[in-house]
Design a protein around this nucleic acid. Structure first.
Lengths: 337, 337
DNA sequence: ATGAAAGCGCTAACAG
DNA sequence: CTGTTAGCGCTTTCAT
């Protein structure tokens, strides 16, 4: 079955020219006589020639593909949390347009994290994008220091000696809008379900909640989740147990807000009559929840696009100065608050 | 910044041995003296040497990565339809365990379809898996004929001269269970929202509906969707317009069933009192819909895993005989029917 | 057990 | 405008 794949050499022989000429035609050089070019194209067609990418990469030092590394398990990336899909969608759009191949890599375990590191360092890709980073992963810095273009979505948690460009959203601005909305509606016992403390999205959103509440002279009620629906549900139960008279909750993700909705229903609370709920993300399903969710919209797809654009700039050797970007967020009011 | 990456040569010099020896150590050959091996490992460590994958592939003809091609736009793959994530999850599990790199490729447009074809033919990957195939895409056959290992999830629609192994689920068995459940509950005006006629999942599920209804001596009510929530909603409106007295509907996907639920609510019908609804997939969100959805469970993650296992077998040169597999489906009864 | 040498298939100067 | 030539970095006989 394994038919021999034709090489440049074969095409050259068939067309009666040199390998170099075939290479020129294949790579679209304009300095080739029309008739020769056509003869070569014919030979390519007849033989079904496709350039060997390994050979090409070996000499050009480029692969035309770019990695997106998600330091999460596949289970998490492809759960019902639509954050990852949205990032990927945005990235895909830009990379598609630039005819670059996206290589998606999940790195939720130590083993896969190592594999991904080797993969990137082996020159398998021309650049590496990160999303959903936890703690202070040294990998972005490491790769960047090796000269591999790197962009992160989400501001890195620790400033390193070798800063990496990033794109993020205005977490705090959005949360402030949300909490003020609750305050304006007369809510006074406002809790939050925070995201994981090892992620910038978790930290910043909690900060937004805290500062706004402090400004208003109110006390905090914090339960920590991990952005999943389940964790949101459990956190809500905890909050309710600690203070049964809560009248509002800001959840740092839509999925956690959905979990909270469920928990409140289980506890016999009406939303928003007894307890107002606000999420963060504005996923499509939040329009269909019961009741539809008031939430902070963040432009996740745009984050992906922007990150990909920056990456393309880096790969194409454009100035890599001050490329970090922060996109706006915005409260979307529906029936839950 | 672009620090030179060390080569075999550099490591060899530093360790005071030949390139061949370093290569042996790096590739875990046992026929190397312990002290030399250690010296080489030290040099590798000190220099931060990582083998150049392009060079390696050029000679080994293998890349240690495997593609999953989804002939859909990224928009569709990463929508709220959880079919794709589930497939990917299953595939990832197996590939991770085998330390192979998954390369995810969306090919929803002609341009990207071509790009993907070139990519695979350029020897960028050791094998190619397909999911969510439409019509009679010649690509699987083409690649297979070129000697590239290929496995499909979903039975190919047309038998070719060059059959490709596949893994699929028992669509018809599941639908028969679903429709019989409706019949047993006394439903007599049973409609269906069918999937796209160019996909095997669309065709088979419609067949299951038709044969069961015919057996029962009932007449058909068919509206066609494309598996999306929106198409399900529109189809339901059409069905209702044609026959306002429908008392049940089988939707060929959970997303379409969710759309139907919405449409029925809009039309003032109660579910299941006025109209029973059954879906197909058993996504997690179907447990949270209003009312929770009765649906046919299909083991999508297992499909992915099974497909990946077959692929690994092929890549490792195991016998590729009779590798096609059909996994069971099962009705899960909740409140919507 | 180790080294020398021959490419894998391609691109990129450099001549002509 | 086209051909010749020299590698890219690695694995793998084949000697030793």
């Amino acid at each position: 079955m394994t038919r021999e794949r034709p090489t440049l050499e074969a095409v050259a022989r068939r067309a009666g020219v040199s390998r170099a000429t075939v290479s020129r035609v294949v790579n679209g050089s304009t300095t080739v006589a029309v008739e020769i070019r056509d003869a070569v194209k014919l030979a390519v067609e007849e033989l079904g020639y496709v350039p060997n990418q390994a050979a090409r990469s070996l000499v050009t030092q480029r692969t035309e593909s770019i990695a997106l590394i998600l330091p999460e398990t596949a289970n998490r990336v492809f759960s019902d949390d639509l954050f990852f899909p949205a990032i990927i969608r945005g990235v895909s759009m830009e990379l598609d347009a630039a005819d670059k191949q996206l290589v998606l890599m999940m790195a939720g375990s130590t083993a896969s994290h190592d594999r991904v590191e080797r993969y990137a360092m082996a020159g398998h890709v021309d650049g590496v994008m990160f999303a959903s980073m936890h703690g202070s992963d040294p990998l972005p810095g490491t790769l960047s220091r090796l000269g591999i273009p790197v962009v992160c979505s989400g501001r890195p948690m620790t400033r390193t000696d070798h800063p990496v460009p990033y794109v993020d959203v205005d977490h705090i601005g959005g949360v402030v809008q949300a909490v003020r909305h609750l305050l304006a509606a007369g809510r006074r016992r406002i809790a939050t379900i925070a995201g994981p403390p090892d992620m910038i999205a978790g930290v910043d959103r909690l900060t937004g909640y805290r500062t706004t509440l402090t400004e208003a002279g109110l006390s905090e009620h914090v339960a920590v989740g991990d952005f999943t629906r389940d964790s949101g549900m459990r956190a809500m139960h905890r909050l309710l147990a600690e203070d049964p008279d809560l009248d509002a909750v800001f959840a740092a993700s839509d999925m956690m807000a959905h979990g909270a909705l469920q928990a409140l229903k289980d506890a016999g609370r009406r939303v928003p009559d007894d307890v107002a709920v606000i999420g963060f993300d504005d996923f499509e399903i939040s329009r269909y929840s019961d009741p539809p969710l008031t939430t902070v919209r963040q432009p996740i797809v745009d984050m992906g696009r922007t990150m990909a654009k920056q990456m393309l700039g880096l790969v194409h050797g454009q100035p890599d100065v001050a490329t970090s970007v922060v996109l706006p967020t915005q409260l979307v009011v529906r029936e839950s608050a």
